[in-house]
Design a protein around this nucleic acid. Structure first.
Length: 590
RNA sequence: GGUGACGUAGCUCAGUCGGUAGAGCAGGGGACUCAUAAGCCCUUGGUCACAGGUUCAAGUCCUGUCGUCACCA
């Protein structure tokens, strides 16, 4: 079997607030579970993401705090690095959108779409502050809602009736930050993305996704693609990627499009820093043996199933070289690989309410990971992962699932087995005698799990996959209870040794089966079984230098990783890694 | 407002092409004791949001109502 190239693209967190567990359950954790599985399977995995540094909300926050936008985003970017390292989200590269690499590719995207005539100029009416001498983003304007009459409606949306607005619709508009500003309506010239011109290829792309895309994602995307109209591609804003057109000062690429482009630019950056500058093409240009996945939340679906495809298709139409990125003759007019699957998750709520910092409804991932450790958090979030519909975080459920399943079912299985081996067999894996039917059955079941669990993981049915692994742990507990080696040891030491060997061998397989979900726990269990090689590589934060600036990134070093998605071949006589100790702690919540 | 979804046991969720509901956890009972009083066996819970309709038969299809969510200038 030849290894596949798997590109795992993860939603880019917006750098104006800490990550909460909803973000983790929605995108980062599923992506990591999937990536870890594919690595164990022996595929060539690259997992990329980064902080989304640009856009209005960061500018707003910076103004409010008297900082520069860069200072604001760099603070949260470094928090993201720390949080995700702690959680074990194993990015090959987690970078950000304020790099020179990303800016250069962003401008190339613009030029290429312009040259291909998918961008056209049109004017848009927008509120202009005569006092400040600049256009005001809709969200920075408030006034009376033309629909419900609420007098504090924002320019982009009315909080009272929920309707989306345009700033120019507001009655008596005023600046939210400077109420004394004199506002007028001015026309601003912008570039629009000609989505109708790309409708056919996008629909063709969506046409063969039945059967493996989540139905809600597919249906929603098709509807939108059928009726989509041209959308603004640029914004009046200085914090972003300036559009490479003369006389267009103060205009940037709409942050959404350049954030999407991050999947490509981050792969390019990854290739560069790993000393194989062309390697990104093996994921983006070679159509065979590649699967690109985009892990996102449901609020991002259209961007990742329609608009991003439109950008990629729009860029690939011309045969001319794409600036410095690719000008080799055989790649003239390269076609980009489009995402193979976009397994969008629904939302994780908190007590039925959605996460909202401003309403005090939030659980910061970094706090929970520090307090309880990554594995209990990853385990619970995997169990309640909102794959099919919104789900709910519950503190009592979190504690109960940890205590009764992760600890009592799985952790205790390791402990009860290894402590008997430690005490009765000099701390070495016993030599098995002849295997009974029951022995063979449980071993066969563990071996079969690698196929069935693997299929579920490969199809991104992660909750299902974890439940099946838990069933195997239950079956192993049943095996032990039925065989009762603690009785056999008194009358037939050899038989007890066989029973414990069988249990330990299944546990050895279980450490691999659980590994994508709770990698830290699996590493510890593996060490207790006496292995000295880790299953996975190591994450590290590194500072990279470009010509003008440096930036911090999260990376993954797989050089020591020895894990394989294969059944255990546990060696009799292998010494355990010391006296077994409980690996999972109880969680008490009141 | 428009578009697309969701509403199943105390909790988290499954329910494929329609045939009078399932799992795990929690709760109750039991036998054991290797284990972080964990594990194992047995077991109580549901007018499948509500109201109509189609059908021999609907959680499963259709309509409406209520509630929740996402997206859309």
């Amino acid at each position: 079997m030849t290894a596949e190239n798997i590109l795992v693209c993860v939603a880019w967190p917006y750098a104006n607030g800490d990550l909460h567990v909803g973000h983790v359950a929605g995108a980062y954790l599923p992506a990591d579970i999937f990536a870890r599985y594919q690595r164990l399977k022996g595929n060539r995995v690259v997992m990329v993401s980064g902080s989304d540094a640009h856009g209005t909300p960061i500018v707003v926050r910076a103004d409010k705090e008297g900082k520069t936008p860069r200072e604001v985003f760099e603070y949260f970017h470094s928090r993201f690095l720390e949080t995700q390292q702690l959680l074990g989200i194993s990015y090959d590269l987690f970078t950000h959108t304020d790099t020179e690499n990303h800016h250069a590719i962003g401008q190339q995207m613009f030029r290429r779409l312009l040259a291909n005539e998918y961008l056209f100029k049109a004017t848009q009416k927008q509120l202009y502050s005569e006092t400040q001498g600049k256009f005001l983003p809709d969200r920075l304007v408030e006034g009376t809602c033309p629909i419900c009459g609420y007098d504090k409606a924002r320019g982009d949306q009315c909080d009272n009736c929920g309707n989306l607005l345009d700033g120019t619709q507001l009655i008596n508009p005023r600046s939210r930050n400077n109420p004394d500003d004199k506002l007028t309506v001015r026309e601003s010239e912008h570039y629009f993305f000609d989505l109708p011109a790309l409708r056919e290829p996008v629909l063709a792309y969506l046409a063969d996704k039945d059967g493996y895309w989540r139905p809600t994602v597919l249906e929603f995307s098709r509807r939108y693609a059928e009726e989509m109209e041209a959308r603004a591609f640029t914004r009046d804003l200085t914090w972003g990627i300036p559009i490479p057109v003369q006389g267009a000062e103060g205009k940037c690429i709409y942050v959404w499009y350049e954030a999407l482009l991050g999947y490509l630019s981050a792969t390019v950056e990854w290739a560069k820093i790993t000393g194989q500058p062309d390697a990104w093409k093996e994921f983006w240009y070679q159509p065979d043996n590649v699967r690109i996945y985009n892990f996102i939340g449901k609020d991002n679906i259209l961007f990742h199933t329609v608009l991003w495809q439109a950008v990629l298709i729009g860029m690939q139409r011309l045969g001319e070289p794409w600036d410095g990125l690719d000008d080799s003759p055989q790649n003239r007019g390269p076609k980009f690989n489009l995402p193979y699957d976009v397994p969008a998750n629904q939302y994780l709520n908190l007590g039925g309410q959605k996460f909202s910092k401003s309403l005090g409804v939030s659980l910061d991932a970094i706090d929970l990971a520090q307090k309880y450790g990554a594995d209990p958090l990853r385990f619970y979030l995997s169990l309640i992962m909102p794959e099919t519909k919104d789900s709910d975080w519950s503190w009592t459920d979190f504690a109960q699932r940890n205590n009764s399943e992760l600890l009592a079912k799985w952790g205790n299985l390791i402990q009860r087995t290894l402590s008997q081996i430690w005490r009765n067999f000099e701390g070495r894996i016993p030599q098995p005698g002849e295997l009974t039917g029951a022995d063979q059955a449980i071993i066969a079941r563990a071996e079969a799990a690698f196929n069935s669990v693997g299929e579920k993981l490969n199809a991104v049915r992660l909750r299902d996959a974890l439940n099946e692994v838990l069933e195997l742990a239950t079956a192993t507990n049943q095996y032990l209870d039925f065989e009762a080696p603690w009785k056999a040891i008194k009358t037939d030491r050899a038989r007890a040794g066989t029973q414990l060997y069988v249990a330990a061998r299944v546990i050895d397989s279980l450490t691999v089966l659980f590994a994508p979900f709770t990698p830290g726990l699996s590493e510890k269990a593996r060490a207790q079984l006496g292995y000295t090689d880790p299953l996975f590589g190591e994450q590290y934060i590194e500072t990279l230098q470009e010509r003008g600036r440096s930036h911090d990134v999260l990376r993954y070093d797989a050089s020591r990783a020895k894990g394989e998605w294969k059944p255990s071949r546990l060696t009799p006589g292998q010494p355990l890694g010391g006296e077994p100790k409980g690996l999972v702690s109880k969680i008490e919540v009141n």
